[in-house]
Amino acid sequence: MSSPSTPTRGRPARLDRTRTLHKALDLLNQSGLDALTMRRLADAMGVRAGALYRYFATKQDLLTAMAERMMDGVAESAAEAGEGDWSEQLTALARAMRTALLAHRDGARVYAGTHATGANVLGFADACVGVLREAGFRDDDAARALFTVANFTVGHTLEEQAALRASDGEPADPEVLREALTAGTYPHLSATLPTLTSTDFTRLFDFGLGLLVEGLRARR
């Protein structure tokens, strides 16, 4: 009897954890998270669906492993870019995380809700906490700041990626908001419409991150 990983249609067996993760990320970038299923991944690997469960017991296990892979090199790249005081180092770490998530279609959706404990995610977290502790923050404040910065980064990137239409990658039509404001009485929103409809997501991210850093500076 053939094993669950016996290839179909005579193709050679090429299944291992690393190759499976690479293929899963390829499929994610091609079609998005909603289209990524264990069956489709198995078909792309040329194996039976049950073979994947050797490495990933559930799809959530697969997503957690994908999140870990996305964070590969993030802490190291931030260390190279973030010279200066603690605020510049922390800012570099957050920017590097955003860049890593944006590198993959629906990257923030994949990362959100996972609790990876691999070297990439833990290395990033350790770097964030280390920067703050060495700057004189209390241990509990450093840990909470890690959650705050990471959650802001993931949340912002979720909205940023959601604002791009999956079909062609173009920003959502700002006319939708403009028409909604015209239909009602929202003077303050109307006054700030150019900013509200801006697609300069990097500037928006840096503004929010700056607020967090200044809040931490005041607390320190």
Rank of each mutant, 00 (worst) to 15 (best):
G113P: 00
P171T: 01
E170L: 11
R165T: 07
A143S: 15
A127R: 08
L41E: 02
L146C: 06
L177C: 06
F205E: 01
L212E: 01
L90F: 10
L101A: 01
A218F: 10
L25K: 12
K23Q: 12
K59W: 01
G84I: 13
R14T: 09
S5I: 11
S190C: 05
D72K: 10
R95A: 04
A42G: 03
N120W: 05
T157N: 02
R138V: 06
A180C: 11
M66T: 02
D206Q: 10
R165A: 10
P7H: 01
D173F: 07
T6D: 12
L41W: 12
F152R: 01
L181D: 02
T117Y: 10
F137A: 10
D72V: 05
Q161S: 01
W86C: 10
P194Y: 03
G10L: 06
L132Q: 03
G73H: 14
E80P: 13
G208M: 05
R11V: 01
L63W: 02
V121F: 11
M1V: 13
G73R: 06
G118L: 09
L164D: 01
A67S: 15
L132N: 04
R98S: 00
A78W: 06
R17L: 10
S198D: 07
P174K: 03
R98M: 04
V110L: 03
A96N: 05
T64S: 01
R9M: 15
M70N: 02
A183M: 07
L27N: 01
T197I: 06
T91G: 14
G107T: 03
L28Y: 02
E134K: 15
A42W: 09
P187A: 04
T8P: 15
E88T: 15
R14S: 10
E134S: 14
F147M: 14
D16L: 14
T148R: 12
A81C: 12
V154G: 00
A65I: 08
E76H: 15
R220N: 11
R14F: 09
R220F: 12
P174S: 06
S2M: 09
L36G: 05
L41R: 07
A116W: 11
A172F: 07
L25A: 14
G73M: 10
R178H: 01
T64F: 01
F205C: 00
A145H: 00
L216W: 03
H22Q: 07
V213F: 06
S198H: 08
A119H: 13
Y53N: 04
A44G: 08
L196Y: 06
A125N: 09
P12Q: 03
L93D: 02
R219W: 10
